[in-house]
Amino acid sequence: ALVGNYGSNGKLKYYKADVALRIGSPAAEERVKHHEPLIRNQLVMLFSQQSDATLGSVEAKEALRQEALRQVQAVLSQEEGQPLVGDLLFNNLIIQ
């Protein structure tokens, strides 16, 4: 689970996100696990930049999910030469 704070209006707000990655093969899974710290860092940075507007509706959460997938694929493409991840899903997303 990723846990952190977001927002910049003076009052700290918190999120907790459980993320699942869809990976096509056991070999790709090993490569993704190898880069897990870099992926987690990228996702924490993405979530910390969010606001109530970007987390407040179903459409906004879907846009965040798509952006998170793009960023994970970008990290893996840079490190491995291919995205390796087919999809990113939120198992749980709590905003407080």
Rank of each mutant, 00 (worst) to 15 (best):
A1S: 13
A1E: 05
V3L: 10
V3Q: 11
G4T: 10
N5R: 15
Y6Q: 06
G7D: 13
G7H: 00
S8P: 03
N9R: 14
N9W: 01
K11V: 15
K11C: 06
K11N: 14
K13L: 06
Y14H: 13
Y15M: 04
K16R: 15
A17H: 09
D18C: 10
D18N: 03
V19G: 04
V19W: 04
V19M: 02
A20G: 09
A20C: 09
L21V: 03
L21Y: 10
R22C: 06
R22V: 06
I23G: 00
I23H: 01
I23T: 01
I23N: 03
G24M: 13
G24R: 14
S25E: 08
P26Y: 08
A27F: 05
A28P: 07
E29Q: 11
E29N: 05
E30H: 06
E30L: 14
V32G: 04
V32E: 08
V32I: 10
V32F: 07
K33A: 13
H34E: 14
H34R: 15
H35I: 07
I39P: 09
R40W: 08
N41E: 15
Q42T: 15
L43V: 12
V44I: 14
V44C: 14
V44W: 01
V44P: 05
M45C: 10
L46E: 03
F47I: 02
F47H: 06
S48H: 07
Q49L: 12
Q49F: 00
S51E: 03
D52E: 12
D52A: 05
D52L: 09
D52V: 03
A53D: 14
T54C: 06
L55C: 02
G56N: 08
V58E: 11
V58M: 08
E59V: 07
E59T: 02
A60V: 05
A60M: 04
E62F: 10
E62Y: 07
E62M: 02
A63M: 08
A63P: 00
L64G: 07
L64C: 08
R65K: 15
Q66R: 05
Q66K: 10
A68D: 11
A68S: 10
L69N: 00
L69C: 08
R70T: 01
R70V: 03
Q71L: 11
Q73N: 09
V75G: 01
L76N: 00
L76V: 02
L76A: 07
L76Q: 06
E79A: 11
E79F: 04
E79Y: 04
E80V: 13
E80P: 03
E80Q: 12
E80D: 12
G81C: 04
Q82T: 14
P83A: 08
P83T: 02
L84Q: 05
L84R: 02
L84P: 05
G86L: 12
G86R: 10
D87E: 12
D87I: 00
L88K: 02
L88H: 02
L89F: 04
F90Q: 09
F90L: 04
N92E: 09
N92I: 03
N92F: 00
N92L: 02
N92R: 08
L93V: 08
I95L: 12
